[in-house]
Write a protein that binds this DNA or RNA. Structure first.
Lengths: 232, 232
DNA sequence: CAACCCCTGACATAATCTGTCATGACAATC
DNA sequence: GATTGTCATGACAGATTATGTCAGGGGTTG
């Protein structure tokens, strides 16, 4: 990769992450750390407001923007392909939200890429791997609850249970296994972490009541999982 | 004046004038006209949509300076989720191109959405539905060939065959079934449409030779498919 | 203290840039 | 048709810049 594309990529990367190290960039672009330092200097000299956090990495001043992003044709095609893949997943909210995001993204395509993306869309299809049944609609709300530390009140129905139980939970992590979305949460009823399949959540409400981060670590949780397929 | 500042100045100048000639810029920056032509090429390659008016000069695409789209939090979460889902697919190019596109998209997030998206990323995981083996790397190139009407020369190995056969094809459609990417193409060897699994393409090259659209209709093709799971 | 991060200068080598020259195309005007 | 003004590209020699390696230095955090 030559210099100008690399400088632009560094700028994009800085805008896409809160903090990034020189080593990470050097690895990503296949150059030496010394070259990254030089690039950073060069961007600064060109007026880019890069912030250095001692011992941590680089970030960029909030709100700094030079020009809109431009996608390569392969990237556009990957977005279209992803849309078809996501359309086959089992959460209605995910499908809808992703499609809405894509509409916005597509509006930024240059006109020649726009016609090509429409052509690709008409010539591609992704078949469902299993029966195509929407199983839940809870993923988006559960994600929002998790990243905003909002408690959730829900009625949950276990597989072998006749009745639902009322649960008040603090969502800590979400994973997908065998096409089923599962939330790991601190359960107020059980006073411990429990897993809940989202398709078994019968009714739920995201509360305004907040919870404190209990420091749940997803990697650690799965590192001791007996099922090897569920190790990271 | 060295290169990077000059490129930035050219970009600034283009944004501030309706039309500007190469000679005018050469005079302004004290470089040759040939260098300006090179700079323009370089900016174009970097994604800047420069418009050439024959015999008149250069301008920049209208709308280039509009502010980027804004996403809702749910849409951001859907993008992050999609990234995890796509990371489990079986084409290396797709995974990589989608990730690159996502970096660019993430660079447009406002900083509070950025920290939330990073939090979600750390608390989510999608397990592979089957063994996580990369099967091919051909999808992106095949997509490009298809939308740009470029022929492809490839060595293809059928399941029961000992040898590969050389094929020259015109890609007409692409679909994914049971996590396998398949291209439907007009095959010059067979003088008819054939399907090819991309993981069985052993070596390929996108040619500069172009083909004419034969009007292949994907919906029609699958409407008469005996396998009901493969109907639209 | 160790680990992690950022920082700069010097140097040899590699890579890229630059101006000049030549050639070609297109549009507008006379 | 000829002329003018513009954009466009390749080739080449010489100039300039970029790069990786090595050495040395600093700050922050647990």
């Amino acid at each position: 990769m030559s210099q100008l594309p690399r400088l632009i990529s560094i700028l994009t990367l800085l805008k896409s992450k809160r903090l990034i190290t020189g080593n990470e960039m050097a690895g990503k672009f296949g150059v030496s750390l010394r070259t990254i330092y030089r690039d950073i200097r060069k961007l600064e000299q060109a007026g880019v407001p890069i912030i250095t956090e001692e011992g941590k990495g680089y970030s960029i001043m909030d709100g700094y923007t030079v020009s809109p992003v431009q996608f390569k044709e392969e990237e556009v095609n990957a977005l279209i392909t992803a849309e078809k893949i996501v359309a086959n997943t089992k959460d209605a909210g995910l499908i809808s939200n992703f499609a809405n995001a894509l509409v916005k993204i597509k509006s930024t395509f240059r006109s020649n890429l726009q016609s090509k993306s429409e052509l690709l869309e008409s010539k591609m299809h992704v078949f469902a791997t299993k029966n195509k049944t929407i199983q839940s609609d809870a993923l988006a709300d559960m994600q929002l609850a998790m990243t905003n530390f909002s408690m959730v009140q829900m009625d949950y129905k276990k597989l072998d249970a006749q009745q639902t139980t009322a649960r008040k939970i603090e969502p800590a992590a979400i994973y997908c296994y065998d096409e089923k979305w599962i939330v790991i949460a601190w359960c107020h009823l059980r006073k411990d972490y429990r897993t809940f399949r989202m398709d078994r959540i019968k009714k739920y409400q995201v509360l305004t009541e907040k919870f404190k981060d209990r420091g749940f670590d997803l990697r650690e949780y799965f590192s001791s999982c007996p099922d090897e397929n569920m190790r990271f």
